[in-house]
Amino acid sequence: MPDGLRLALTTFTVLPVRAGRVDRAAAATAMGLAPLVGAGLGAVVGGAVALLHAAGAPGLVAGAAGVGLAALLTRGLHLDGLADTVDGLGSYRSGAAALEIMKRPDIGPFGVVALVVALLLQAAALAGLTGREAVLAAVAALGTGRLAVAWSCRRGVPSARPDGLGALVAGTVGGPALALGTVLVAAAAVPAVPGRPWQGPAAVAAGLAASGLLVRHAVRRFGGITGDVLGAAVEVATSLALLVLVLR
């Protein structure tokens, strides 16, 4: 557990945690704990958005600052993964050829559009949330994003490469950990929309469904998951969860 927690924190945050043992056993624990790390990040991001709103900042400024803080706290790795994955899928190539495109340091037009849409959607959604609602929605959405990673690493999902993060975590998360993580995130999402207790869990389900379709398509095209695909799953699930949470 200690090694898995350290790996979860070093993988999903910028916290200067001393590295522990890194193997598939620790990876299984880390991916299972990912939703809790995401919820913690959400509390920080949502709290910042709420404080900016209370200080008189315009809604879009508060939302954009929240998205920027989320990127800072995660080194922007998930956004980079989204851009690379969409570039690989948009190339209409498969297997090694698509993976080679994803390894390039530049971002193509598909990746740019994906980043712009995700960032605008998240910032605009957070812009309309204040106080307690901002905190609860961010906890639910960012928790959903990391829960999507756990589902992407479930048993039976292969790695596209023999090395890298995908090879370390692919197929490591079992059913009990997935069930527990899903129940906890859905429960945390219940109070995110006052007067509509069903809407929070619906947002979690929408985020997981969207990221699941993306990962399924990526596995078909690339042969498995990579670290970039996991990053893309985070951003897609987070964006869709926020979208559903602000629907009225």
Rank of each mutant, 00 (worst) to 15 (best):
G38R: 00
G38P: 03
A39M: 15
L41P: 09
L41D: 11
G42Q: 09
G42D: 11
A43R: 01
A43M: 09
A43P: 07
A43L: 12
A43W: 06
A43N: 06
V44H: 10
V45M: 14
V45L: 15
G46W: 13
G47M: 13
G47E: 11
L51P: 01
L52S: 03
H53D: 10
A57V: 10
P58K: 13
V61H: 13
V61N: 10
V61G: 14
V61T: 14
A62W: 14
A62I: 12
G63D: 08
G63Q: 02
G63R: 03
A64F: 08
A64H: 05
A64P: 04
A65D: 09
G66W: 07
V67N: 05
V67K: 06
L69P: 12
L69G: 15
A71H: 07
L72G: 05
L72I: 07
L73D: 12
L77R: 03
L77M: 07
D80S: 04
L82Y: 06
A83G: 02
A83I: 03
T85Q: 11
T85W: 05
T85F: 07
V86H: 07
D87G: 11
G90I: 10
S91H: 04
S91M: 01
A96G: 06
A98G: 05
A98E: 01
L99N: 07
E100N: 06
I101D: 08
I101R: 12
K103M: 04
R104K: 07
R104S: 05
P105M: 00
P105C: 01
D106T: 12
D106N: 13
I107Y: 15
I107F: 15
I107W: 15
I107P: 12
P109L: 14
P109G: 13
F110V: 09
F110Q: 08
G111Q: 03
V112T: 13
V113H: 11
V113P: 12
A114G: 04
V116P: 00
V116Y: 00
V117H: 02
A118T: 05
A118D: 03
A118P: 02
L120C: 06
L121K: 00
Q122V: 05
Q122R: 12
Q122W: 01
A123I: 02
A123G: 02
A124M: 01
L126N: 14
L126A: 15
A127I: 11
A127R: 10
G128N: 12
L129V: 08
T130F: 07
T130Q: 05
T130H: 04
T130N: 09
T130E: 10
G131C: 10
G131Q: 12
R132Q: 14
V135A: 13
V135K: 08
V135S: 09
A138K: 15
A138F: 15
A140E: 10
A140K: 09
A141D: 10
G143Q: 10
G145I: 05
L147M: 01
A148I: 01
V149L: 03
V149Q: 01
